[in-house]
């Protein structure tokens, strides 16, 4: 029988004798921001299915990959056939239209991930445990909001950044492209944040009302999709009242973010100010629900 594994000397070098008796901890203690960061990180990882079974991971990861799909496909086609087709990446897939293409994916991603941040804590009664530490209700909520927004950026912002990076790679003069189109970067970041804040806060607000994930997902989709369907029906009935687009809650932030890109502003039915006002009303309502649910002495 042959021996396997590391040599005895290597094993001895890696070995560590650890005394596991209880001892008083007298080391560094970090501030409450670190506690908020921990809540955010754990929440974000949980919403993506980390340290859980493959079923919990499969859907969010699949949606992130689908959100990347348009960018990867266009860049792939450019890599494989660019010389023959002379494809212009900025024309083939403009940044202004990217979020509209993957709008359903963003909607679903937020619907599936945001309930993970609040529902299990509410269902299992874990909030009482967290509040027995130095964490306040406001800090808990801040951690969970950050934990919801960070994964959402994977679908609202990162795919456009990937596309931007791909364009740079394929440009004959990347520095020149960057010099001429640097303004697209803050637009991409802004558009990504606008969508993440909107879908994240709405998802969290609905989730704060129930301990059941299924109810939270259903309520979130109903809240956003039903007004959108109603908006379409009313537009059919009254004919071309474009202001009705402002109650199409599932696509409202996409219309708002579209105004960030000058090439698309003319194609969007309502003005940026109208979209901003409608956007702020919805976001403020969601924030108000959250603050009410997690007010001192509340049952959130």
């Amino acid at each position: 029988m042959s021996a396997s594994g590391p040599a005895p000397g290597a094993r001895a070098a890696d070995a560590e004798i650890r005394d596991v008796r209880y001892d008083t901890y007298a080391g560094e203690r970090r501030g409450r921001r670190a506690a908020v960061g921990s809540l955010a990180l754990r929440g974000a990882l949980r919403s993506l299915g980390a340290r859980r079974g493959w079923k919990a991971k499969a859907v969010p990861i699949a949606l992130v990959l689908l959100a990347m799909g348009p960018a990867v496909i266009v860049l792939g086609v450019r890599a494989l056939f660019g010389d023959q087709t002379g494809i212009d990446l900025t024309e083939a897939l403009p940044f202004s239209g990217y979020q509209a293409i993957i709008g359903v994916i963003i909607l679903l991603f937020a619907g599936i991930t945001t309930p993970e941040l609040l529902c299990p804590d509410r269902r299992d009664g874990t909030l009482e445990l967290y509040l027995s530490t130095a964490v306040s209700r406001a800090e808990y909520l801040a951690g969970r909001v950050i934990g919801a927004l960070a994964p959402l950026l994977l679908v609202t912002m990162v795919p456009m950044l990937v596309l931007y990076a791909g364009i740079l790679v394929f440009e004959d003069d990347p520095i020149g492209y960057l010099r001429e189109n640097w303004a697209d970067l803050p637009r991409i970041v802004g558009a990504g944040l606008v969508l993440a804040v909107y879908y994240g806060l709405v998802g969290l607000a609905v989730s704060s009302l129930t301990g059941r994930r299924a109810f939270a997902i259903g309520g979130y989709l109903l809240l956003l999709v039903a007004p959108t369907v109603l908006s379409g029906l009313l537009q059919e009935a009254v004919g071309g009242a474009e202001e009705l687009d402002l109650i199409a809650f599932s696509i409202l932030p996409i219309g708002f973010a579209g105004h960030f890109f000058p090439d698309a502003a003319g194609d969007i039915p309502n003005t940026a100010a109208q979209y901003a006002a409608a956007y702020l009303v919805v976001v403020a309502a969601a924030a108000a629900v959250l603050l009410h649910r997690f007010r001192p002495g509340g049952d959130g």
Binding site: V20, R21, E28, A34, A35, S38, T133
Partner: peptide
């Protein structure tokens, strides 16, 4: 971690 321990210390203390 919520009580302020850095990650590495938190892992060691949890084991203890």
């Amino acid at each position: 971690e919520l009580r302020g321990l850095p990650r590495r210390a938190a892992v060691l203390r949890a084991s203890e």
